[in-house]
């Protein structure tokens, strides 16, 4: 290893650091094309739009680091928005009760995902793929194909508005504040005993169990956290973009791409919550860059697919090299 590479590795703190470098590069690209991007209002608009994905990434991080997947989040976001519109139906006074119902629903979906995966030993990939289809179908059945009702103004506030008349930036979006609060919460949670056990369960389930850890409970809790993050993301996306039958579609893949881009290893046990959220920010920034370059939005799925493969391949290479060398040290 050359000195420069070693220095680079030290600066980046190993693998998860790569995403921050990537983020800087993408921002530099945006800056080159559109110097006005980093002025207060447009930066705030970007962060407002990125907030739901960042929050979803935090939720997905818990599930992935414990050794599972949650593919049901996109469908859950969609379901939550449709439920909100139908139950609120334009009545301001119903806003808070309906949000509580949504929260309960998000927790319930996470709990079902978690229990099916841990108790019935169904692989999470299948459990949550099934949940995706169930939610998708159930919502269409319930609404008869097209979402009905409408959201209240109060419901749309967190996703759309913010603290106004702030010098320099104009408006600080509620979505950004919620994102920062939940992001900080996620980082702190990983430093608690729960977070440590979650990480150990993803790394070596058996060792964690033999150390007395309640692995199944921790993993189920991770699914619940993912369900909660999808609920919050649903409230923000609903507020921001309104109600449609397509809300949330494909979001599960975007968020998994984001988490993987953050250097969080599929299979669990490695990566940080901060890097996962930075991965989400990087994806959003990349799409912004595409807009600046006037590339068609239809390109996005293909790019996401390429990123997810490249990120996992990069992680695998980085991992196997030193590992081979150390296991090769004599018997």
């Amino acid at each position: 290893m050359t000195r420069a590479r070693r220095l680079g590795a030290a600066l980046l703190g190993g693998g998860t650091g790569t995403v921050f470098l990537l983020l800087v590069l993408i921002f530099a690209g945006i800056l080159a094309l559109n110097p006005g991007f980093f002025e207060g209002p447009s930066l705030m608009a970007f962060l407002k739009q990125a907030a739901p994905l960042v929050i979803l990434a935090a939720g997905q991080y818990f599930v992935i680091v414990s050794g599972n997947f949650d593919l049901s989040v996109g469908a859950l976001v969609g379901a939550q928005v449709v439920i909100a519109a139908r139950l609120i139906d334009g009545e301001e006074s119903r806003t808070v009760p309906v949000m509580l119902v949504m929260l309960a629903f998000g927790i319930g979906v996470g709990l079902v995902n978690g229990l099916i995966t841990t108790v019935l030993k169904v692989q999470s990939f299948i459990t949550t793929l099934g949940m995706l289809l169930v939610l998708y179908g159930a919502i269409r059945l319930w609404t008869g194909g097209a979402p009905t009702g409408s959201l209240s103004e109060a419901f749309r506030t967190p996703g759309r508005l913010g603290i106004t008349d702030v010098p320099l930036v104009g408006q600080i979006p509620w979505a950004l504040l919620i994102m920062l609060a939940l992001g900080a919460g996620a980082i702190l949670l990983m430093r608690t005993r729960f977070g440590r056990i979650l990480m150990a369960s993803g790394d070596n389930e058996l060792a964690a169990k033999l150390s007395g850890a309640r692995v199944d409970a921790a993993r189920t809790a991770a699914f619940v956290l993912s369900g909660v993050s999808a609920t919050v993301a649903g409230i923000l996306i609903g507020g921001f973009a309104g109600v449609s039958a397509q809300v949330g579609e494909g979001l599960e893949f975007t968020v998994i791409t984001a988490v993987v881009l953050g250097g969080v290893a599929l299979g669990g046990g490695r990566g940080t919550a901060l890097a996962a959220m930075a991965g989400a920010l990087a994806i959003e920034a990349l799409f912004t860059l595409f807009n600046q370059m006037a590339l068609p939005a239809t390109l996005r799925p293909a790019v996401q697919g390429a990123i997810i493969i490249a990120a996992v391949a990069y992680a695998a290479r980085r991992r196997t090299r030193p590992a081979l060398q150390t296991t090769a040290s004599p018997s």
Partner: peptide, 8 residues
């Protein structure tokens, strides 16, 4: 296999 979480 049983004692350590090797990547921690």
């Amino acid at each position: 296999a049983q004692g350590l979480a090797l990547h921690q």
